[in-house]
Nucleic acid binder design. Structure first.
Lengths: 336, 336
DNA sequence: CTCAAGGTAGCAATCGCTTGCAGTAGATTT
DNA sequence: AAATCTACTGCAAGCGATTGCTACCTTGAG
């Protein structure tokens, strides 16, 4: 199966074995159409038998293309990203690209540093939810083909999940359940998504004429949620929008610790719909992101960018998923 | 900051600029000690000013080393892996290695396929919790330097988390709480860890003289846990060991659905201590894996393997973390 | 029967960097 | 002062693939 374990199989070994020149072997793989059918098949057969694998370094050197794309995430341990990584990886492999994963560990400077390090090594870059300011990003990216996920940067192709409609729907849902006083537990200022979500909720609250108190910023993490819980209790809101599911889980724990029940005392809405959202108790009402599409679109856009096409900005809609963390307000509380 | 945006900076541009040969520039980077101090500094300064980044493809072609290691995981969306990925990544970057992430999507054949695809592209490979049978693995790995994480394969360096002691401690803990009838919710047969954990629990049960009923195999996932719950209810065990935290969470949900309470009706122990374990309600008593060490050790072993050293097999101990999912047996149940 | 056109193959240069070997100049030894 | 080191530096040959250009061999047309 693995073929002769001689030395190392190159196009030259194959050429010799087949009695043709190396160029022909090369072409048999890269432009099969221009080599004679018989010859091509003979070459492919021998290559398979010998277990030939083209040397990517050599090819990269000759063509200037590395066959590799970078994927920069702010924090791989944040459960939002693994599914995205997988989706992108699968979409990339269709294009015959390998994916170099880069984790910035949630620190903005690390992002630009990492980009600087890999820019010479990849053909393109996908930057997911970057924390760096636009200017820094633009600076380091330079002329490297890149697409941004979950953030809009002027002049760059991007694909974002638009949660506005779903958050509005969530608001309406809560309103119907009788809630009139809401809290917005804000995410990190550096996060584009946080600003976008906050904007959507503010817009809805204004239109619906309900009371909205903003709390935070809190970290986009379980810990951040734990910190947010007392703040929420200090307000008189009966329903809250957390920046994301992770934070919502922290809030859940914080409220439970304080002896409050969800959804009986408070209703809570998360965002992203990570696995956690359906496994916590109570399960979270949240906005489900179309992760698969996000990935395929990112690769598509990157492909376009590498061909020099104009930057396109795609927005995909999140959808509201109702679960157990939202319920009606106890009668006494509604009419104060 | 980014330097002249002329064409592409190579060692030749720098050499010309500095009035030295390309070899000297090359050496100024790869073996700084053997080039004259003044010259070296001049070169470094110019390189920095021009924004020089060595071309990895060229270097790889010349040296035969790619400066890249592969990291194969069975399922990146399983929350056990992201922290491991990060740990490995950080350890790798110290060695100046990039990490190529490969996700097998939980299918064994995909693993061997992926290995085949990247073997020519990386200097070494880290295989985490592989699902393929030993023989297949050995076959595809061949002479590629590789280290296995969380599984022991004859003749290969490996680093595993040994949960035996911690699981035994968990058993004793439950025993002290009054439990006498236990269930083992087995993980997938293909998983080495599942077999190892099962063995440890069997050993303890035998030594402690308690009743142990084995259920499963179940999938190592939330869904698997949901399926395990009815089986657990069908047994008369009062305490259960789940294969991992994910499965334990599923069991938790299944029991809750059936109106059973943890830890009042049943006690439950997980394994791995993923983020989920502390966020579910009730939080999970589990075995905490030393993920960071796992990562650094893996890189260390890989380094050794690449130098041709003998395969070393390291085992690191997991530690028992007590949380809310284990409690005493209600008096009526203990003495039947 | 000769010539042009098409379809295939081969030659050789090139991508950017590493490295064994040889050469040079100054320092040290005798 | 001659001989021997030392410490650098440069030359040039690769590493394995791609690709523009040239050359060859058929065919078909004139």
């Amino acid at each position: 199966m693995a073929g002769e374990r001689s030395k190392r199989v190159t196009i030259y070994s194959i050429a010799q074995e087949c009695g043709v020149s190396a160029s022909t072997v090369s072409r048999a793989f890269t432009r099969p159409d221009i080599v004679n059918d018989d010859v091509r098949e003979r070459i492919h057969a021998v290559a398979k038998r010998l277990g030939y694998q083209p040397n990517k370094a050599a090819r990269g050197l000759a063509t200037g293309r590395a066959g590799m794309v970078g994927l920069l995430v702010p924090d791989i341990t944040n459960p939002f990203f693994p599914p995205l990584v997988r989706a992108i990886q699968q979409a990339a492999s269709v294009q015959d690209w390998s994916v170099l994963l880069l984790d910035a560990d949630e620190v903005a400077d690390e992002e630009t540093e990492l980009v600087e390090q890999v820019r010479a090594q990849v053909d393109g870059l996908i930057v997911a939810s970057p924390r760096s300011p636009d200017a820094d990003l633009e600076d380091t990216l330079g002329d490297l083909p890149a697409v941004v996920v979950n953030r809009v940067v002027a002049g760059r192709p991007s694909v974002v999940c638009d949660n506005s409609a779903a958050l509005t729907a969530a608001g309406q849902h809560l309103h119907q359940l009788g809630h009139r006083r809401f809290a917005l537990l804000r995410g990190p200022e550096a996060s584009w998504a946080a600003r976008q979500r906050a904007e959507a909720i503010r817009g809805w609250a204004l239109a619906a004429g309900v009371e909205l108190v903003e709390l935070g910023d809190f970290a986009a993490s379980y810990e951040g949620g734990r910190e947010a819980a007392p703040a929420l209790l200090g307000s008189d809101a009966t329903a809250a929008f957390a920046f994301d599911d992770l934070m919502a889980c922290g809030v859940l724990a914080g409220l439970a610790e304080a002896g409050r029940s969800v959804p009986d005392d408070h209703s809570l809405v998360g965002c992203d719909d990570v696995l956690l959202a359906q496994t916590v108790t109570p399960s979270l009402t949240t906005v489900t992101a179309p992760v698969g599409e996000l990935g395929t679109t990112a690769i598509e856009l990157l492909h376009a960018a590498m061909r020099g096409e104009d930057a396109r900005q795609v927005r995909l809609d999140g959808t509201l998923t109702l679960r157990a963390s939202t319920g009606a307000v106890p009668a006494g509380v509604v009419s104060r």
